[in-house]
Simulated scan of single mutants.
Amino acid sequence: MKGTITDDLALDYLKNSFTSEDIDEFQNISAKYGFSLFAHEHKPQFINGPEIWFPQIAVILSHEVMQSIVCGLATNALYDWLKVLLLSIQIKLKANLKNRPFYHVSNGEMKETTPSVHIVIEQNHIDLPVDMDQEKFEYCIDKAMETMKQLNECKKTYCIWDENTKTFKTFSYEESLRMNFSQKESSEK
């Protein structure tokens, strides 16, 4: 399906993450709630920078959808749609990981990894970890919806789930860069 200016959401995903039947299901879920979804598959790529800046799977909200959330005009149907869609994406990803694992290359080593799903709102990224049970993932989605309302669409931010506090920690672009380098330094020691 070709993307249009009127699509409410774009799903950008790493090749082989989903089957064509999965994508049809995501589009049917969207249509059921009165929204449209554009799906785009991208090839694996080597990145030189913090992984958080390059999501393997991104759910990109249109400007109109983002504005309705930030301005408090979003309907329950919008929240229900996003929640059902994100849960469906998590279920399909977890099922597909058994046959098609994701890999991460660091310090010359290739390791199997679990992807996360980024909700992208303008310059903001909310990083939803996929490797949790459905109940926790639902809770995480609810917290993501709360976080969305507080985002500043003009400043680039990254929201990362903190399992200890059960909240999203928000980092600026610069803070995420510093965090990535400190994690890299500590892993090299």
Score class of each variant (00 low, 15 high):
residue 6 T to C: 03
residue 170 T to V: 12
residue 29 I to S: 09
residue 88 S to F: 05
residue 87 L to R: 04
residue 130 V to A: 01
residue 26 F to D: 00
residue 96 N to V: 12
residue 112 E to W: 11
residue 78 L to F: 09
residue 85 L to N: 01
residue 83 K to S: 13
residue 31 A to G: 06
residue 107 N to L: 02
residue 76 N to A: 09
residue 66 M to N: 06
residue 6 T to L: 10
residue 79 Y to F: 11
residue 121 I to C: 08
residue 150 Q to Y: 12
residue 74 A to P: 07
residue 159 C to H: 03
residue 185 E to S: 09
residue 41 E to D: 00
residue 31 A to D: 08
residue 64 E to M: 06
residue 160 I to C: 09
residue 180 N to A: 11
residue 163 E to V: 10
residue 179 M to N: 12
residue 59 V to E: 11
residue 188 E to Q: 01
residue 143 K to D: 11
residue 9 L to W: 02
residue 10 A to W: 00
residue 132 M to K: 15
residue 185 E to I: 15
residue 177 L to D: 07
residue 77 A to M: 12
residue 73 L to Y: 15
residue 100 R to P: 08
residue 119 I to K: 01
residue 89 I to Q: 05
residue 3 G to T: 13
residue 177 L to H: 05
residue 13 Y to S: 08
residue 178 R to L: 11
residue 160 I to A: 02
residue 173 Y to C: 08
residue 59 V to N: 02
residue 32 K to L: 13
residue 146 E to M: 01
residue 49 G to I: 05
residue 166 K to V: 15
residue 63 H to L: 14
residue 115 P to W: 10
residue 187 S to N: 07
residue 71 C to S: 15
residue 55 P to H: 11
residue 115 P to Q: 10
residue 180 N to F: 10
residue 23 I to V: 15
residue 187 S to P: 03
residue 47 I to Y: 13
residue 155 K to P: 03
residue 126 I to D: 07
residue 174 E to K: 02
residue 121 I to P: 08
residue 12 D to H: 08
residue 81 W to C: 04
residue 155 K to E: 07
residue 66 M to R: 07
residue 177 L to C: 04
residue 127 D to V: 13
residue 84 V to C: 04
residue 101 P to E: 11
residue 15 K to V: 04
residue 131 D to M: 06
residue 101 P to K: 06
residue 157 T to H: 09
residue 44 P to G: 13
residue 146 E to P: 01
residue 184 K to V: 00
residue 143 K to W: 15
residue 1 M to P: 14
residue 44 P to Q: 09
residue 58 A to L: 02
residue 183 Q to V: 01
residue 137 F to E: 06
residue 132 M to G: 13
residue 75 T to C: 00
residue 1 M to H: 14
residue 112 E to D: 09
residue 89 I to T: 09
residue 43 K to A: 01
residue 166 K to A: 12
residue 156 K to F: 02
residue 121 I to W: 05
residue 124 N to E: 03
residue 27 Q to A: 08
residue 160 I to E: 12
residue 164 N to Y: 00
residue 115 P to D: 01
residue 39 A to S: 06
residue 55 P to N: 09
residue 148 M to G: 01
residue 46 F to W: 14
residue 94 K to L: 10
residue 115 P to C: 01
residue 97 L to F: 04
residue 134 Q to E: 15
residue 41 E to W: 03
residue 62 S to K: 10
residue 179 M to I: 14
residue 113 T to W: 09
residue 128 L to S: 00
residue 132 M to N: 10
residue 108 G to F: 13
